[in-house]
Design a binder for these strands. Structure first.
Length: 784
DNA sequence: CAGTGAGCGAGCTTCCGCTTGACTT
């Protein structure tokens, strides 16, 4: 019997292809195209500006293999069905597939589904449509605009920045850096205001009759005098409960995870970086444990909802079920996928500990979103002071029904926590007219705080709120702005600050001063001087692109293109014509940018001291470079210092290097900071200084043991040396290897065990062997 | 591995979004 050729169905993700193939059975072969298969060529931006912005597309080198395979399969197959994601990018991928596979977009069958379930897929097969060219054109406009912005703006930076390696600008990354830069400046400009917060401690009997203490809040005073007068006025007072208000309250569970909320919660609860979360989620997705991890939808499939309900009922009981449909706040959400959830609610994975923790987080969040509200009772008691008109107020919360909190509690960012939420707690039962035994009263000085610096995850949240970037680009964007040196992730040590406490106890008011640590931050994003200077420059000359609403505005235009109300090349022309003028006039007129700031004058020479960006980063300079007789002196800023905030004194400190500490074994021991951080130079050799040593303070006595130890460690690593040929056999973290000059050669497995026995001839043979067959590297993309 | 800092000019870099790999000198 003659068999009909199978139909070919193309999706984007290979993991999806596997699942769908099982569902569709015999008639379909399901393959994936691994995302976009074509992109703009690189020469001339890949855009013919004079010819209505006609794009030139090429198949990138790393996609050639997939394209070749799809081409040959499509020839052999019956019909080709395009089942890429239902969004702008997915539609464009389908069109590119038509172009590359020689299919007619007017007739080729195009289907979509939002969930990978048998009914959804079978239903979509019965309702094929064709490629929506308006949507494709909206994608082309998006792609071309991004290329224009990136490839016109970056070269402006190369020309105008003194530091020009690898600089870049773009619609998304430049605004991301701006967000970080502006927060930093807000923090620098912030002046804390202090208030004195009154807190009184009382005792009362709890339900079991035991005496417990609880506290009540009083008025806030802006001066210590006011607080002191108040405490004095309370000496010998009687405290009576005057009023009790009990209010019910409820908490509702958060929506199921999207990419952005998963990144935020994994950061807060598990401490994962944004990219770590995505790597782990990808693994869970590929092993079939969770649904697709790059999504902005909070939608759940009907079958998933059923399973969640069953699971809640089995695990917690029916009274915990509350069915909810979540809606996306953001209208631009492109709903191509479901929310991130376990594919099956079976609560177990065999993955490693980190993946398991992420899976459990997803599981709990998914379960919780269909669970009942938590019911609370908030009690507020007013307390009268007999000597005084002021009142105190004590509040407490009792959980009446835990609801979804039984499964899951969402964490909050520092900046979103209100004062009320900080002081949760229980109150003992109280009655009106009850007289409360007084323990003590304090007025504590508290300072207002600036908003905290962004974490990777809170930056993602902000970008999503502004509609900038997509689920697939949040993690890469964060790594780009760090790679370019615009932003750094690091910790900041706090500084000690005094605060005052006034204390009323045993009818006496006493004053004391205590120390607190303030301003400490962990794993936060800091702008570098480069990031600040580049942001200022772009804001000055390209304020429209740097506008927080730029993306939102052009998204509206893309939508009009998608609806067929606007021509894509007309839209691009309206953008490009004025933009190109700005680019040209900036190149012509803008001065080179250095972020220069004058600090003062050197006491000994009287010369001017400035800080600015140099070719190799931020630096201090004493004297003018136009002076031919005497060259200026230079010193590099430490990476925690900034052009904007460094003091004259700190800047002058930097000139204390290089320092000669003294002599050891007949040669100078010199301390300096180089390309790779602080180091000791001794006898033409270099030894890195560990973080705990301060290069400005280290002594000869501390430095010499470092030299001796590092020498010994090197000895330890050395297996054998062929002096004449300058070949070394060394032990490294990946096993023994050969070092010749600057190049390293890996030993073949079978030679690793007895590396010490290798002869010169054998070693040379290995080098030749490795040279002839170099280890595979990730191929560098060629220029298009 | 551990320099430098002016300006010129060759030749190079660069964007955002969609997908996974194959890899550690």
């Amino acid at each position: 019997m003659l068999r009909m050729a199978k139909n070919l169905l193309i999706v984007e993700s290979p993991a999806k292809a596997k699942t769908i193939e099982k569902i569709l059975g015999e008639d379909f072969e399901v393959k994936s195209c691994y995302g976009h298969i074509r992109d703009l060529a690189k020469g001339d931006m890949g855009i013919d500006v004079k010819n209505k912005y006609k794009p030139t597309y090429i198949v990138p080198e790393d996609k050639e293999k997939v394209v070749k395979e799809l081409k040959s399969l499509s020839k052999k197959s019956g019909e080709v069905w395009l089942a890429t994601d239902e969004d702008r990018e997915g539609e464009a991928i389908s069109w590119h597939l038509c172009e590359v596979l020689g299919l007619d977009p007017k007739t080729t069958k195009r289907i979509v589904f939002h969930e990978i379930t048998k009914p959804a897929i079978q239903a979509s097969i019965t309702h094929p449509r064709t490629v929506d060219m308006n949507l494709v054109n909206a994608q082309q406009a998006r792609r071309i605009l991004d290329r224009i912005v990136g490839f016109e703006l970056s070269p402006v930076l190369w020309r105008k920045m003194s530091m020009k390696n690898n600089l870049s600008a773009g619609r998304v990354q430049s605004v991301a850096v701006r967000i970080i830069a502006e927060r930093e400046r807000e923090i620098n400009a912030f002046t804390p205001v202090s208030t004195f917060r009154v807190e009184a401690v009382f005792t009362a009997r709890d339900i079991s009759g035991k005496n417990v203490t609880f506290s009540a809040e009083g008025k806030k005073f802006s001066s210590p005098e006011g607080a002191e007068a108040f405490l004095n006025s309370c000496i010998g007072a009687k405290y009576t409960v005057s009023d009790i208000v009990v209010k019910p309250a409820k908490k509702t569970p958060p929506a199921p995870f999207t990419t952005s909320t998963l990144q935020q919660e994994a950061s807060r609860k598990l401490g994962y970086s944004v990219s770590r979360t995505m790597v782990l989620a990808q693994k869970l997705y590929e092993s079939g444990k969770i649904t697709y991890m790059r999504t902005d939808s909070v939608n759940l499939s009907e079958t998933a909802m059923e399973e969640i309900k069953k699971q809640i009922s089995a695990q917690y009981g029916k009274q915990y079920i509350q069915v909810r449909k979540f809606k996306n706040k953001n209208e631009s959400a492109q709903e191509a996928h479901e929310a991130i959830r376990p594919t099956y609610m079976e609560h177990s994975t065999s993955e490693d500990a980190d993946s398991r923790r992420l899976y459990e987080l997803i599981w709990k969040r998914t379960i919780a979103c269909q669970m009942a509200d938590a019911e609370l009772e908030k009690t507020t008691a007013k307390i009268q002071i007999s000597t005084n008109k002021e009142e105190l107020s004590a509040s407490g919360e009792v959980l009446k029904f835990d609801g979804f909190l039984k499964a899951y509690m969402e964490d909050k960012d520092d900046e979103d926590i209100t004062e009320e939420e900080q002081q949760e707690g229980m109150l003992p039962p109280l009655a009106v007219n009850q007289v409360l035994p007084f323990q003590e009263m304090k007025a504590t000085e508290r300072f207002s705080r600036p908003l905290p610096r962004y974490t990777e995850a809170s930056l993602v949240k902000k970008l999503e709120e502004l509609g900038i970037g997509r689920p697939s680009t949040y993690a890469p964007t964060i790594s780009t702005i760090q790679k370019r040196g615009y932003v750094e992730k690091r910790d900041k040590e706090g500084v000690k600050r005094e605060f005052r406490i006034l204390h009323l106890k045993n009818d006496q008011v006493t004053k004391q001063t205590e120390l607190e640590n303030t301003g400490a931050e962990k794993s936060k994003l800091f702008p570098t001087d480069l990031g600040l200077v580049v942001t200022d420059f772009l804001k000055l000359y390209f304020d429209d692109i740097m506008d927080y609403n730029f993306t939102a505005r052009i998204e509206e235009e893309f939508d009009e293109v998608a609806q067929g109300k606007m021509q894509w090349n007309k839209m691009i022309d309206d953008f490009y014509t004025p933009f190109k003028k700005d680019v040209e006039s900036t190149i012509e007129n803008a001065e080179r940018i250095s972020g220069e700031r004058e600090l003062g004058f050197d006491a000994t020479t009287g010369k001017k001291v400035i800080v600015r960006m140099g070719r190799y980063g931020p630096m201090v300079q004493i004297g003018d470079s136009s002076n031919e007789e005497e060259k200026p002196r230079f010193a590099k800023l430490k990476n925690t210092q900034s052009i904007e905030t460094i003091s004259f004194e700190d800047a002058m400190e930097l000139f204390r290097l290089p320092r000669v500490l003294g002599q050891f074994e007949g040669s100078d021991v010199v301390i300096n900071i180089g390309r790779f951080g602080p180091y000791i130079a001794h006898d033409k050799k270099f030894y890195s200084l560990a973080k705990e040593f301060d290069p400005y303070a280290i002594s000869l006595e501390e430095a010499t043991p470092i030299i001796v130890e590092k020498r010994a460690a090197k000895e330890e690593r050395t297996i054998k040396v062929f002096e004449k040929e300058k070949i070394q056999l060394l032990r490294g973290p990946y096993g023994p290897y050969i070092k010749q000059g600057l190049r390293n050669y890996k030993l073949p497995k079978e030679k690793q065990e007895n590396a010490a026995d290798l002869t010169l001839e054998e070693v040379k043979a290995i080098i030749e062997e490795v040279k002839a067959n170099p280890p595979k590297r990730i191929p560098k993309r060629k220029k298009g």
